[in-house]
Design a protein around this nucleic acid. Structure first.
Lengths: 132, 132
DNA sequence: GCTTGACCTTCCAGTTACTGGAACCCTTAG
DNA sequence: CTAAGGGTTCCAGTAACTGGAAGGTCAAGC
């Protein structure tokens, strides 16, 4: 199976698939003309990657998850630990964004948004603002 | 004022301050020995940058905000538009993270997290899972 | 006067996870 | 025979820094 078809099946652009190969995440066969030749197992692996990436796992975490996936002796605790760390990270990011949102809302609410130059958003950034 | 002191006052690492100069965000004077020499206005500018960056504005947005800051004829509506776009972006990110969080929680809750190899997290990533 | 340490300089490379583009090869239909 | 639409490699660029090497400067202590 050529890379174009593999791309459709896996839901990843060809460039990304080649990149994953570059960094050692998979190693498809080659046909006589030098084209990459993807097996069903390769597609499975690519879809695994696509799903894990879309869940916010870094490429390096995907590498770990893949090796756990292929490890017949893995303990589910190992996988759970990675997932829990990721959840904690998501929570941290949400909290940070929520706090940013709060400040932004506050600033926007107090800005008249008209043709006059006075602007509490600019004042705040300049350190003459209302927050603190 | 040397870069070390400027760094303390602005709350930015020296490396970052030099980087901001590289990309044209400020242009401090130089002393005879070639050291950068920061004025009070430079520090003000750096603090502006520090605040805007920590509010999630990109370096390019900071550039726009700085030029609006120095524009005596600006309209507060211009600033408000940038801030509102940023708020919308923050909302999008929060929504995306919330949905990730939901899936992760679900997966983690169903994983025994013990020494057994069975793991719904891995199953899900492999496409044999419970979600969908 | 000399050394030592803290500071400063520039420049190059690396990070993350791709993406764009150039130059070129292969296959197939008309 | 040619053109379109695959495929290949390799190089460079993205965002916003960060680390590190090699070397200049300055102030203090002996």
């Amino acid at each position: 199976m050529n890379i174009g078809i593999a791309s459709e099946r896996a839901g990843l652009p060809p460039k990304t698939i080649r990149y994953y190969e570059d960094i050692g995440l998979l190693r498809p066969a080659r046909t006589d003309n030098g084209y990459r030749d993807y097996s069903a197992a390769d597609i499975h692996r690519l879809r695994f990657l696509q799903r894990a990436r879309s869940l916010g796992f870094s490429v390096d975490e995907c590498r770990q998850l893949l090796s756990l996936y292929h490890d017949r002796n893995r303990e589910s605790a190992d996988v759970k630990a990675i997932a829990e760390a990721k959840l904690a990270e998501i929570d941290r990011k949400i909290a940070e964004l929520a706090s940013l949102r709060h400040v932004m809302r506050h600033l926007i609410e107090h800005c008249s948004g008209d043709e006059r130059p006075d602007c509490p958003i600019i004042d705040e950034l300049a350190g003459e603002g209302m927050v603190q």
